[in-house]
Design a protein around this nucleic acid. Structure first.
Length: 443
RNA sequence: GUGGGUGUAGCUCAGCUGGCAGAGCACUGGGUUGUGGCCCCAGGGGUCGAGGGUUCAAACCCCUUCACUCACCCCA
């Protein structure tokens, strides 16, 4: 019986993992320009943390958490999201007393026991960012701006959907209006929405059913119910972003799942992800820190789904950053130790070197060099070893330069010799497939 | 948790009414004694997801089960 990865968990193999590196390093770069620092959090927390932060009646807490009993009978949970841990840490270390505003980001795995499907895994990864300590519109706008910068830097053309969910004074009123409205349209709504009407009426606004969309087309709009402070806040956020020409779409039907969101809420949707089409979701959560036993400190944050983002980037063309600079071909076993030493010397200077086996035919080695799209091959055969000089083949011009590289010189000198005439030929591109140029011989 | 689809070589997939397990790509060697892409030849690689049943004979028919996948729900 073959052992395989468990359901909903998966390996990220090298051709995908380099994409992850790009995403993670871009996040670090983009976020640091906005003054964010990385926080590294435990993956395991007390179950109570998530139950309180996310909400006892949410799907996540009710049926999706990996919860187990530790040897001392305490209940532990593999984190299903990151915000709760950030808040716990923020309160635990009294960060609010050390600085007026905390800007934190994290990257790591999250766990939810859902049925897997395209873009949804039981272990998935999020890049999240949180700003704690300020509730003014400037902060909301700054966070959205940063998000926009991040996606732009990855050359993804996305639009951010934004809405205001109001606060504890204005939302309950709207909620009741919407429920009354929904009950008046009861017959036209789907079965799911009948349940939503009881549990969370706002959810009927983003139902995918055609009938429900039609029935709710003239539903009351949340924006009309916002209290003055909320209305003003949301207006400022929009104005700030419009001044910066950030592409946002006000979507009055945008509602977010987790209990703690209020005021500014947003998500980034993308095509090509199947029905799990949100790459990023977030919003403001002003009462949460206090609710978790900390001081009354406002917060806002978002989480980006790394798998989904990687899927989007995969669809784009990518350049392979792992192509070796030089491919070393020892011909015969006798040449291997010399080749080994040369490879070592070049690598120590930071060059990417691929070393083949002298036991394989020259032809086979060349075939692989071609496959890797290597620009230069350094051939070390009998003649080269006795002369102490390597032969270079420029794979693009197909030109050999016999014994052109003195193997006793420094790595830098060897590289200069290997690349010598390539400066003039820098823009020479690889000929198209099937092209039958004759090899030029030189020297 | 609920539905649909699919499981055959490393990958993508053929395989008819049951009758010797196949192709393309990839990999390895050779054609070219020390030189890549195209072409040609050869080779390695399979518990046909698993278990049971029917049959002289099952990848194929029946039952059970597992996995993967897409969608609902929910969410990143």
């Amino acid at each position: 019986m073959k052992i395989t990865a468990i359901r909903g968990f998966r390996d990220i193999l090298p051709d995908e993992s380099d994409l992850w590196q790009i995403v993670a390093s871009q996040a670090r770069t983009s976020f640091s320009t906005y003054g964010f620092s990385e926080i590294i959090l435990p993956i395991l927390e007390k179950t109570e943390l998530f139950a309180r932060a996310i909400g006892e009646t949410t799907d996540i807490v009710e049926k999706e958490m990996y919860t187990f009993t530790d040897r001392d009978e305490s209940s532990l949970t593999l984190r299903p999201e990151g915000t709760a841990s950030v808040i716990r840490s923020y309160i635990e270390h009294s960060l609010h007393q050390k600085e007026p505003v905390s800007k934190l980001f994290y990257i790591g795995p999250m766990f939810r026991r859902e049925r897997p499907q395209k873009g949804r895994y039981r272990q998935f990864h999020q890049i999240g960012a949180e700003i704690l300590g300020r509730d003014d519109a400037l902060i909301d706008a700054e966070l959205l701006l940063m998000l926009n910068d991040f996606f732009t830097a990855l050359r993804l053309d996305v639009s951010i959907d934004v809405n205001s969910l109001g606060c504890s004074t204005c939302r309950p009123q709207y909620r009741e209006h919407l429920r009354t409205f929904g009950e008046s349209k009861f017959a036209a709504l789907c079965e799911n929405c009948h349940g939503r009407l009881q549990r969370n009426p706002l959810r009927i606004l983003d139902c995918k059913e055609e009938g429900c969309r039609h029935a709710t087309s003239d539903a009351p709009v949340l924006a009309d119910f916002l209290c003055d402070p909320c209305r003003q806040h949301f207006g400022q956020v929009q104005a700030l972003l419009q001044n910066e020409q950030v592409k946002i779409t006000v979507n009055s039907r945008l509602v977010r799942g987790l209990d703690y969101y209020c005021r500014t809420s947003f998500e980034v949707l993308a095509l090509g992800l199947g029905s799990q089409n949100a790459v990023c979701g977030g919003g403001r959560y002003d009462g949460l820190v206090e609710q978790m036993g900390g001081p009354a400190i406002p917060g806002i944050g978002f989480a980006i789904g790394v798998e989904r983002l990687a899927m989007l980037l995969q669809a784009q063309e990518r350049q392979d950053s792992t192509v070796p600079d030089v491919f070393i071909v020892p011909v015969g076993e006798a040449a291997e130790s010399q080749a080994f030493a040369v490879a070592r010397r070049l690598r120590r200077d930071g060059y990417r070197i691929e070393l083949e086996s002298g036991r394989r035919s020259l032809k086979a080695q060349m075939r692989r060099a071609d496959k890797l799209a290597v620009p230069y091959v350094l051939i070390l055969g009998e003649n080269e070893i006795t002369a102490g000089k390597g032969t270079v083949r420029d794979m693009r011009t197909k030109a050999d330069r016999s014994l052109a590289v003195d193997l006793s010189t420094s790595a830098q000198d060897m590289m200069n010799a290997i690349r010598a005439p390539s400066a003039q030929l820098a823009d020479l591109s690889r000929p198209p497939e099937g092209n039958q140029h004759k090899a030029k011989s030189e020297v």
